[in-house]
Design a protein around this nucleic acid. Structure first.
Length: 551
RNA sequence: UGGGAUGUAGCCAAGUGGUAAGGCAACGGGUUUUGGCUCCGUCAUACGAAGGUUCGACCCCUUCCAUCCCAGCCA
């Protein structure tokens, strides 16, 4: 049990909020959601359902310059995909602009806020530094009447952008810089994606967030660690206004190796064309992960396993891969596909003959049913499943060696045909007719089993093989994170699929046996399917070879 | 340098005075018609460091060290 759930249980037991639990997921609609947001979604919606509470979806749209409706729609889709249920509780900070304004007038009346004529640069100068206290603005002690008048005129549009701001009157010598008369409102003559030109003054995050939480009756306002300093202001505003007061609790944000989870960097990757879009399967965006074939359940497991604490941490990408494999192993139908084809001719199999094998879609779960797969004299196998000069412990095909063609027959390689350059172009094999289904008729041991497709029946397909977007473990540590971009993050292959795959719907995930999990992409056409590799299978053999090569 | 937060294995993370959970990774082995899955085993004399309190300290106290956050009219 993590510290937040522990605390929620205590609060519910003590009746602190009348035994209620109400959280919120408050994204700013200025970009797409990513893995870091998944952690927050799983937390906020998760605790709500675990403890019989509610979780609101709230768009923190207080900055008209950055926010767009496109992002609102994308965020809704992503949250829904992850199972977040907000029912009729989709809110927007912009819904509360009138309330925020009224609270601001009250703060002024209380003598706790003032209109400042200082420029942005001057405000910065007056703020002081980490070690020196700030100085009070010359406009700090205006009368309530003058402040009210000025603020109303700000709202009426009488001033230009940047001309004045509304500030809280707290303490310019506060050791916490957030408390040195923070800005509450700024003037922005800009159209807001929801309120249009109704307003030309917009509230700041610190001001809007606590008031939104309070208005919605939030009990536990969960946010990331960089807001620890802001909690003092959160509390100050609510206390000063004497309003219902939720509890802000901070947790460490998620970091994952080999990727970036900063909105700024993600926007840059998309806008500069380093990736194909927000849903590029190499991106850690939820839409990218979805397109890659990552099931939402895998993300839930991931969020459960990464834990929740207050220490900065970087989770290894391998853990995400583990969670993806874990779910897909149990839920993805098995099929056969060859990504790097090598032709095989079964010399003793009659020309023109064809037979069909019934193969289960899932070896451990009969409920997945089966399909038939055609077998004929000419096949394709994976080029990597043959070696002219096999290393020790190589269980696959090589001259004279026998392997099992998955669910079909045992075959022995008689000859490898090579071209002038020495490249193997074709394998001449013989099969054992007694081994139908892949049985060993006399109990002889055949260690290797390889996948295959019938040359005459195979479906061509484009396969996108994705690797890490960044070669470096921590791209953000580099001077320019773009320098860490992995040039091999995407490689294209022309594969051959077993015919049953013709009817697979886009968005569905399957396991290409012995290769990995693949998701049919929306770019697929009737003539040619496109598959994205979600994740490879664990490959113990590749690891053995690599370790042996290192010696 | 002021304030705040955090240090437990390669990576996460429990433990909150009674003698270091769990997961990932790694390594070894069994099983296997996926070199997949699965199963079994190994993996911190040690909790940032040094002192102190205590019968007993990861836990309490003191000092120190390291890392992260804050000087937007961003969130």
């Amino acid at each position: 049990m993590d510290f937040i759930r522990t605390r929620i249980m205590q609060d519910m037991a003590s009746g602190r909020y009348g035994g209620r639990l109400h959280t919120r997921f408050p994204p700013e609609p200025n970009g797409y959601l990513h893995l870091g947001h998944a952690k927050s979604i799983c937390l906020n919606f998760g605790v709500a359902s675990e403890f019989g509470g509610l979780c609101n979806l709230r768009f923190d749209d207080t900055n008209p310059a950055k926010e767009e409706t496109e992002y609102v729609d994308a965020i809704r889709e992503d949250v829904r995909w992850l199972g977040g249920q907000w029912d009729d509780r989709q809110f927007h900070a912009s819904d509360y602009f009138a309330h925020f304004y009224a609270c601001a007038e009250k703060l002024i009346t209380l003598g706790k806020a003032y209109v400042d004529d200082l420029s942005a640069d001057q405000i910065r100068e007056y703020r002081g530094t980490l070690t020196e206290p700030g100085r009070e603005s010359p406009w700090r002690n205006r009368s309530v009447e003058e402040n009210l008048d000025l603020f109303r005129r700000m709202r009426a549009g009488e001033f230009a952008d940047g001309e004045r701001v509304l500030r809280a009157k707290i303490d310019m010598a506060a050791p916490n810089l957030v408390m040195r008369d923070p800005t509450l409102y700024r003037i922005r003559h800009a159209a807001h994606h929801r309120t249009g030109t109704d307003w030309c003054i917009y509230p700041m995050y610190d001001y809007a967030h606590c008031l939104s939480d309070s208005l919605e009756g939030i009990t536990h306002s969960l946010c990331t660690l960089e807001f620890v300093n802001n909690r003092e202001l959160y509390d100050w505003i609510l206390d000063t206004l004497d309003l219902y007061h939720p509890q802000q609790i901070e947790f460490a944000r998620l970091n994952v190796t080999h990727t970036v989870l900063s909105k700024r960097k993600l926007i840059q990757l998309v806008s500069e064309g380093h990736v194909s879009g927000w849903d590029d399967p190499r991106l850690p965006t939820l839409s990218g992960l979805r397109r890659r074939g990552v099931p939402p359940e895998a993300l839930h497991q991931f969020c459960r396993r990464i834990g929740l604490a207050r220490a900065d941490s970087v989770v290894e990408y391998a853990l995400l891969e583990f969670c993806i494999r874990e779910y897909l192993n149990a839920h993805a139908p098995r099929v056969m596909a060859v990504l790097d084809p090598l032709k095989v001719v079964i010399e003793n199999y009659p020309e023109g003959q064809m037979e069909e094998f019934d193969m289960p879609y899932h070896p451990e779960d009969p409920a997945y049913g089966s399909r038939t797969v055609p077998f004929a004299r000419e096949l394709y196998i994976e080029r990597d499943d043959f070696r002219l000069d096999p290393p020790k412990k190589y269980h696959r095909l090589s001259p004279g060696a026998e392997v099992r063609l998955r669910y079909a027959y045992l075959v022995t390689c008689r000859e490898a045909v090579t071209d002038a350059s020495g490249r193997v172009t074709e394998l001449r094999c013989v099969y054992d007719p007694e081994s139908r289904g892949g049985q060993s008729p006399d109990g002889r041991k055949v260690k290797g089993t390889i996948h295959w497709v019938s040359a005459a029946h195979a479906l061509p397909a484009d396969i996108r093989l994705y690797g890490q977007l960044f070669a470096a473990e921590n791209p953000s540590a580099s001077q320019n994170f773009l320098d860490c971009l992995n040039p091999a993050s995407l490689t294209l292959a022309s594969g051959l699929l077993e015919p049953a795959l013709a009817s697979l719907e886009p968005g569905k995930c399957v396991q290409f046996e012995r290769l990995g999990y693949f998701c049919k992409d929306k770019d697929s056409s009737a003539e040619r399917a496109v598959f994205n590799r979600t994740v490879t299978l664990r490959d113990t053999w590749a690891k053995m070879e690599k370790n042996a090569g290192g010696q």
